[in-house]
Design a protein around this nucleic acid. Structure first.
Lengths: 346, 346
DNA sequence: CACTTCTAGTTCATCGATGTCAACGGACCG
DNA sequence: CGGTCCGTTGACATCGATGAACTAGAAGTG
């Protein structure tokens, strides 16, 4: 059963043509209710399953989308991937995951080589900036997670704009409000990635509060998706002996690494140093002390991305829609790691 | 360029037949070096890319394997997935990820419905036990990650046997050697999953050391992949007021959750209670204190799974090989959370 | 009633690559 | 020199589903 059963087999059993079977399956054309019954019964009895290659060859629809992201070991991406696969809007679509390992070449390859296999792509840029990926021959509707470049208005790419800058700004605002004024940061300061935007938010919040930006408080890491980066950066920061009363890490993975260094060094969190992360991965809630962080609303991001993509999937020509951009909000998650030290309050 | 370029286009350009182009691409048949040159040049110039659907339709090869696992939010699986995608043996294969969310129905659906789309499957059972998945019509070579059922010798399924029992046994041995004799555990005790095997290891180690098994020390959780499960279980454990000097959680996610409860309650790790986890996820190394755990050698698991799968992919009939089973070792990672308290040594 | 319009369904070519088999020309052999 | 074999290559059918175009009959319409 289910072996070598083609549409023709079903058609013969139901005493209709293969085209009618196709119509019933796809809801195209027209057919009477009884015919539909017969066809469905035949499909059931024979255990028929459509050959996706035949369909893909003929109709150029695959029912699959690709999710291209940097690294599954970074929980933020893993949780995002999970959300995307789970989203109700994803129902009926298969999701192929491609992890690019922060390698520019791989990123380019995945984007340009695997396009034919899928109906659409959700893309989280990592090593490539807009100047790199925009010239690529993107033959499938694509949703980019991140900032929309200013000059991209004519392109039919969609963007899901995450609140990196606003989130960082809110976080720094929060730390300042707690009486912390020497706020060190650890993050990627260069590259097309979220780090740069978060740094902008940091500077904006400082400027707003009239606090001077001090470059010696900013430690940069090469790969913020590495847990050990936080350890290295925090160690370097301590070694400079620069004074700070808060440490804002541009993601939770780095923050947890930094936390382990602080704890081991005997620096108390939050009484000596308030600690904050970014992303609100699950591990953040269960760190000791629980980590204050920014939630970028993964679930909204996932839902929006899929919705944007779906709206192009059904189009005759996916380029007929202009490029869109949806902004997602953020939530500040204040936890124990940034509490006001009780001794200070007195 | 690259649009509407088919094999026929290439063939005309190279002044050969489509079959010859096909031969060059697949290394089948025979052709002269000059022909190959001309064909390759034509492919290059035209930017030709094979249509995977046409190939799949004709040859029934997809170049894709499926990875079916419970949950990407559980870092162990995310890291395992990353390893599988990265393994050198995976080169040239695409990996489709399916997350089943611990839902038996979804698991069944994924296994039986999406078989046609891939050349092979790597399957991490979660809600389904051997009795559930063995009867399914598995039409593709499949590698199961976990224990091989005793009565499955005739089936052509391959197993990668992880060292759950041995690992747990070694861990409990280590805790006993540190002078801990009241070892509480948190884990799934039922179901087909790793929890049961780890519990066996726990009991074996106790028996070996002549320590009585005490059921009141065993707390079971419903979903060990939930970070919050550890919190709930540890809270329940403390509420029973049962005395214990070590806590062995059957995975790191639960251990980190439990750690946050212990810390908040004022119980010192490791001086009051030694804590141990299982899996060696990255977060374990950066917990405070760093978490003692068992590494199941994800990289070996990934490599072995792919190797087993590949060995069937090239076969005429994948069932012609008998079922195999490869055992993977484990490594005990002793860290600060299970150190001998200095006060006791005195 | 003659006309269009609609419904339910059919036939046939086609998507692009590959397996089968046959053809062709040269080398090799007795 | 005729026959055999091998290395190369091509013609053609084929995988299974679907789009385009079409038909027979029913239904609506002035």
């Amino acid at each position: 059963m289910g072996h070598g059963v083609t549409m023709r087999t079903v058609a013969e059993r139901a005493e209709v043509s293969t085209k009618t079977v196709s119509n019933v399956i796809n809801g195209t054309g027209s057919y009477s209710p009884e015919t539909e019954q017969r066809v469905r019964a035949a499909i059931e009895e024979l255990g028929y399953r459509m050959n996706p290659f035949a369909r893909g060859l003929r109709s150029r629809r695959t029912g699959t989308i690709a999710l291209v992201l940097p690294n599954l070991c970074q929980p933020f991406y893993a949780e995002l991937a999970e959300q995307i696969m789970r989203a109700p809007q994803t129902q009926g679509l298969k999701v192929v995951l491609h992890s690019t390992h922060g390698d520019a070449r791989r990123e380019r390859t995945v984007l340009s080589a695997h396009q034919e296999l899928v109906d659409g792509v959700i893309y989280v840029p990592h090593a490539l900036g807009p100047d790199d990926y925009l010239p690529l021959p993107l033959t499938r509707p694509t949703v980019v997670l991140g900032e929309r470049p200013a000059d991209a208005t004519t392109l039919s790419l969609d963007y899901v704009d995450t609140a990196d800058e606003q989130g960082a700004r809110a976080m720094v605002g929060h730390l300042l409000a707690q009486g912390r004024h020497r706020i060190a940061v650890i993050g990627e300061r260069t590259g097309p990635r979220a780090g740069a935007r978060r740094l902008r938010g940091y500077r904006a919040a400082l400027a707003e509060a009239g606090v001077d930006y001090d470059d010696s408080l900013v430690v940069s890491v090469d790969d913020a998706d590495q847990w050990s980066s936080g350890v290295g950066a925090a160690t370097r920061l301590l070694r400079t002996r620069v004074r700070f009363d808060a440490l804002f890490c541009f993601n939770d993975v780095v923050a947890v690494g930094a936390l382990s260094v602080l704890t081991r060094t005997g620096i108390k969190v939050p009484s000596d140093v308030a600690l904050a992360g970014f992303d609100d991965i699950e591990a953040a809630r269960f760190a000791s002390p629980a980590l204050t962080t920014v939630d970028l609303r993964r679930e909204s991001i996932a839902r929006t991305a899929i919705t944007l993509l779906r709206s192009r999937l059904d189009l005759e020509d996916f380029r007929s829609l202009p490029g869109r951009s949806e902004s997602i909000g953020h939530d500040l998650r204040v936890r124990a790691s940034s509490a006001v030290p009780s001794s200070r309050g007195a």
